[in-house]
Amino acid sequence: MDTQELINSGDLELYVCGVLDLERSIEITKELKNNIPLQIEVQQIEETYMKLATGLAPSKNELELFDRLQTIIGKDSTVEIVKTRPNYLAWAAAAALLISSGYLYISNNDLTESNSNLENQIVNVQQDNEILNSEIENVKSVNNDYEEALSFIKDKNTVKVNLAGQKGFENSYATAFYNDQEDVTYVDVSGLPQAPSDKSYQLWSLTLNPLTPTSLGVVENSNNLLRIENDNASQAFGITLEEYGGAAGPNLEQLYTLGVIEQ
C-alpha cells in the first residue's frame, strides 16, 4: 500500500481512535517513521478528534482539579522513595564489604565509581538537552502565535476598538482588534481588575438595533493578547463579570467595559 492508498484507506482514522488490532497498529507506526506526509495526516486526524472531544468538555475548576491531582501524585512519589530505600541500603552494605576487602578492590571500586559518575554526567547532559529542546519548541510556538497576532493587527481591515470602563468601573479598560474579513478577534484584557475566584469575565459580541449579545466565551485575566474565535458580524464588544464559567445572557449591572466598532 503506498502513502496515498494508506491515507485513503481509512485505517489512519481507526489507528488514532484505537480500534485497530495491535498488529495493524504496529505496522502503521512503522509506516509513519520517516514518512512526513503520513505523519502530517495522522496529526491532523488526531487534532480533529481532539477538537471534537474538547467541544464536549464541561467547564470545570481547573486549578482545584489540578491541585488535587498534584497532591495525589506528590504522595505517590514519596511512597516510591520509601520503597527504594532498602535497596539503597543493600548496595551501601555491599560497597562497604568491597572496600574492607583490600586495596585492589578499592582501586577497582574507584574505577567503577568514576565510570558511573561519567555515565551519570552523560545522562544529565542528555536530560538538559531534552529540556532545552522542549523549551525551544515552546518558544517557537509562542513566537508563531505572536507573528500571527501581529500580522492580524497590521492587516488593513483590522480596526482597533477601545472598550471603555463603564459606570462604577471607570478605571477598567480593554482593547479589541476586529477584522470583518476574519473569523478571529484579538482582545487585550490587561486593564481589567483580577476577577474574584467564583466569577469569570465574559466577552460579548453585540449587534445594535436591536441590541443582541452573542457570547464569545469567558476570558481569563491575562497580560497576553487573547485570540478569540468570532465569526459574528460584530458591531460592538462588551465585557461583563458573571458567575464562574459564564452566563447565558449578560448581566448589565456588571458591565465593566464597552466599545463600538467605528467602521
Binding site: K51, L52, T54, G55, L56, A57, P58, S59, S215, L216, G217, V218, I228, E229, G245, G246, A247, A248
Partner: peptide
C-alpha cells in the same frame, strides 16, 4: 444529543463552535 441537551456545556465556546 448530549451537546444539545446538556446544561453543563451551554456556555462553552468550544461547544458553540462544535454545534
Amino acid at each position: 444529543d448530549i451537546l444539545e441537551t446538556s446544561d453543563d456545556l451551554d456556555e462553552s465556546t468550544n461547544a458553540i463552535y462544535l454545534k
